Simulated scan of single mutants.
Amino acid sequence: MAEYIMTDYVNMDRCPVYASFFGSLGAACAIVFAVVGASYGTAKSAGAIFSAGILRPDRLMQNTLCSIMAQALCIYGLVTAVIISNGVREKMALFTGFMYLAAGLSVGLCGLAAGFAIGIVGDAGVRASTQQPRLYVGMVLILIFSEVLGLYGVVVSILMLTNANNGVTVCSM
């Protein structure tokens, strides 16, 4: 009987009922912050794309690269949110829930920062490359550097997700 009570205590301590909340919160943070970053990047650069399109309509499609790169941030958040949501269970270890939260915050906040960077670079870059087309290659390089910020969050997030269940207490129903 003492073993049974001790096992229940370990499960309550390491597998509380609120652990799945943190996992779900991680999935929500991944998609919400990534979408906010992508929408800011798209909206900020779209203003420059359309105003520059008045002066140079022939370069309109070339300048949409900013918006396309911003939308890739949504994909990062979506993939991470789906992976996290597939791992969330009613009974799960608290460590796993915290790792899911950290993974979601990692990709979400990196996506948010990357979206801000893409929006600002896209706005200035499109306006500058419209006046001087030789600046387009420089704008693309800086956009790539901005996009990589989101990719760093994905890499860290995947590392956390692969280690979220290593060596944790198995929670029984």
Results as ranks from 00 to 15, higher is better:
G23H: 08
A38K: 07
V17E: 15
T80L: 08
L105E: 05
F95W: 09
G111M: 06
S129M: 03
R14P: 05
M160G: 10
F50R: 03
V148W: 05
S20R: 13
G47P: 04
L78S: 11
L143H: 00
G41Q: 02
A46G: 10
T42S: 04
D58R: 00
N86D: 03
Y4H: 14
L159G: 13
S146A: 13
P133E: 01
T42W: 02
C110R: 01
C171I: 06
L78W: 03
M139R: 00
A81K: 05
T64D: 01
S45I: 06
L105Q: 04
V137D: 08
L55I: 08
M6N: 09
I54S: 12
S20T: 13
Q62S: 03
E90T: 14
F116P: 00
S20Q: 14
I31G: 09
A124W: 00
S67C: 04
E147R: 05
D8K: 15
A27G: 13
A28L: 15
F50Q: 00
M173W: 14
N11T: 12
L135F: 03
L73P: 00
V32P: 01
V35Q: 06
M69V: 06
I68M: 09
A114D: 04
T7Y: 13
M92T: 10
G167S: 08
V148K: 07
L65R: 00
A102S: 11
